[in-house]
Design a protein around this nucleic acid. Structure first.
Length: 613
RNA sequence: GGCUGCGUAGCUCAACUGGAUAGAGCACUUGACUACGAAUCAAGAGGUUGCAGGUUCGAAUCCUGCCGCGGUCACCA
């Protein structure tokens, strides 16, 4: 039985009988009654006074009288200003409990559809960092949430495995590694390759600095404006790209590497495959640690030439136009956007060309009408353009495209910067939190009787809960600040706090079992905190459907936290040990149910529960 | 500068999408473990929701204008 729905139905009937007006459920605002006020659920009557033509208080009185008059579930009401507060009949609570015990936790939408969720999508020249962590956690959680709402989900990513960046790593490795490998150095593959990328940048910076004192450089500088000559440091900073392309030896080597790659030179391809292979094995390790997996990985090296047929089709259909220089454009000014290039004058692809082709490819492969792209909000404009174009093509999947845009992760000191070495490495971060958990866990000593592998499994679960919850509790759209010292906190509004509630319940269930519990009578009188637990659990389906609708895992995280918090209080206020048989029957059942909802909501966040901690 | 997102307790975040006296955690002060796990609970203090107008019975939420902070405006990806 859904109490809120019951109230809505009674209110609609009441309004119809009293004021001869036909209302819809969405015209009514029904919420849980505020803590300090008498009652369980509240109907806001302000919107109804224009129909009743009475004061808010009088309307609430009249409606309350009518609604309670003939309801088995609503015992009494009280009016505070325009708020009509209902108190449930004692018997309703056990009905609610029984109903909840019978209900599944998922919420199939009815419209079964297939969805493809893209997340992670790293470059293959360096390891994953904190930004990827947020991306991965969001993508994975959305996958779980969509599955829970009745979708079949394919997880995917596009590995950005080609281009100048990986060529830099290749050049540096060839020049400086002397045949070293991840195995020979005992380095995780993605870090190994990343080290050579950093090495390249370092050598290049030195080369550039040396060059700045050459005759060629001073001749160049003296031919510049007075402004430039007054501030050479700034001038050289701005000139860096040009230097890379026109003067640099290392730059030339990297560009040559890229050309040979594009010409399918076999030695180059072999080296490229080898280095990417190292990176992938490193990534796989991190993904496994994080507990995520991909059904299909697309590689940019396969897809970077896609999309040209779409460009041709777009020209035919007049969706695109060609400029005199041969480049192809789309006019999106009627969408409030701009003109955007979709093919270079030399006929080669730009970023969006590939994305058009890749979208088509994915639809061919999976026939998913919904495709979710988990990408940071710096690319908001790009996705607006991409989706607008696909809409112009009337693609069958055009309406199901969604950019799961999330805010950047900043440090307390500001934005992460590669150059300043402030990028937080994903593996390092996980390790740091794990160490904090281990230290804490050893001090508490609760896991001493377990063997080492069980202990380490639980510590891993706690550490991952800490980091995942820390990130997922924040609304995806918002830029968030990641304070490392705060992320290792295991108290308060954290993942381990929620796990602790679950663990306490497991302990209770081990002790009392559930098979010989006494029955609970219909008029069993609940404590306030017990009612609150039932009300919170009753709101689960709304939370789940809202999370799916708004692509927002933080709603799930906040639900689990609220439930855990209420349970901790219940645990303190409602002892089972010295309870009557009936109380014990109720409280153990309630605990068991709370555990089920805690575990399920955490599952949707991609977090595992431990049985003890 | 155009477009776009965001400004809530000292800090990190909420606020059922327009409802009651804006809630949590961290940090700070104080109290609760000799029977279910203290990774817990309870109490205290902390706010002109960036500023100014407007709409409404009612605004952190919607509209307008400022101020501040990001992002984006490449034949880069």
């Amino acid at each position: 039985m859904d109490i809120q729905q019951h109230i809505a139905e009674r209110a609609i009937a009441g309004a119809s009988a009293l004021y001869e007006v036909s209302l819809d459920a969405k015209d009514l605002v029904i919420s849980e009654t505020k803590q300090e006020i008498e009652g369980d659920y509240t109907l806001v009557v302000f919107p109804l006074v224009r129909h009743s033509k009475k004061s808010p208080e009088a309307t609430a009185e009249q409606l309350g009288e009518w609604i309670c008059g003939d309801s088995d579930h609503l015992d009494s009401y009280s009016v505070v200003k325009g708020f009509l507060n209902f108190t449930l009949a004692p018997g309703s609570w056990s009905t609610i409990l029984v109903d909840l015990l019978d209900t599944d936790l998922d919420a199939p939408s009815g419209i079964q559809s297939k969805a493809l969720v893209e997340f992670s999508s790293p470059n293959t020249n360096k390891p994953l960092h904190l930004g990827h962590v947020r991306n991965i956690l969001l993508g994975w959680s959305m996958t779980k949430i969509l599955e829970a709402t009745g979708h079949e989900v394919v997880t995917t990513q596009i590995a950005n495995d080609r281009g100048i960046a990986i060529c830099k790593s290749m050049v540096a490795w060839r020049q400086f590694a002397d045949g070293a490998t991840p195995e020979s150095t005992g380095t995780k593959g993605d870090h190994f390759v990343g080290n050579y990328y950093v090495r390249f940048e370092k050598e290049f910076a030195q080369e550039y600095l040396d060059w700045q004192s050459s005759e060629e450089a001073s001749a160049l500088l003296s031919s510049q404006s007075a402004d430039a000559q007054a501030d050479p440091a700034k001038y050289w900073k701005d000139y860096k790209n040009q230097y890379f392309n026109q003067h640099s030896t290392l730059g030339a080597q990297a560009k040559e590497m890229l050309l040979r790659w594009e010409a399918d030179d076999s030695a180059t391809r072999d080296l490229w495959r080898q280095m990417n292979g190292w990176v992938y094995s490193g990534f796989d390790q991190t993904y496994e640690t994080m507990g995520v997996s991909f059904d299909q990985i697309y590689y940019e090296s396969d897809t970077y030439l896609l999309g040209k047929e779409i460009v041709a089709e777009g020209l035919d259909r007049g969706i695109f136009y060609r400029k005199d220089d041969g480049s192809v454009w789309v006019d999106l000014t009627d969408e409030g956007l701009d003109h955007k290039i979709v093919l270079r004058s030399d006929g080669t692809s730009v970023y969006i060309t590939q994305d058009l082709g890749t979208a088509e490819q994915r639809y061919t492969d999976h026939a998913a009408k919904r495709m979710i792209y988990t990408v940071a909000n710096e690319q908001d404009y790009h996705f607006q353009v991409l989706f607008a174009i696909l809409k112009k093509f009337d693609k069958p999947y055009a309406d199901g495209l969604y950019h799961l845009s999330y805010g950047m992760v900043d440090l307390p000191t500001g934005r992460m910067k590669t150059r300043e070495g402030t990028v937080v490495d994903a593996d390092d971060l996980i390790e740091e939190i794990k160490q904090a958990v281990i230290k804490n866990s050893e001090e508490k000593g609760g896991l001493h009787e377990l063997d080492a592998s069980q202990r380490s499994d639980i510590q891993h679960r706690i550490a991952m809960a800490a980091i995942k919850f820390f990130i997922l509790k924040v609304n995806a759209k918002k830029r968030m600040i990641f304070d490392p010292s705060e992320s290792v906190d295991l108290h308060g509004h954290t993942g381990p706090y929620v796990q602790n509630a679950y663990v306490r319940i497991q302990s209770i269930l081990r002790r009392y079992g559930t098979e010989t519990l006494s029955a609970v009578s219909a008029d069993y009188a609940l404590l306030d905190i017990e009612k609150r637990l039932l009300m919170t659990i009753s709101s689960w389906k709304d939370t789940l459907t809202a999370a799916a609708r708004t692509y927002d895992p933080s709603l799930i995280a906040n639900f689990s936290y609220q439930l855990a918090k209420e349970y901790h209080r219940f645990y303190h206020d409602a002892p089972i040990l010295k309870a009557t048989d009936e109380e014990k029957g109720f409280r153990v059942r309630l605990s068991q149910m709370v555990a089920k909802y805690l575990a399920y909501s955490f599952e949707l966040l991609g977090i595992d529960m431990p049985d003890r901690m």
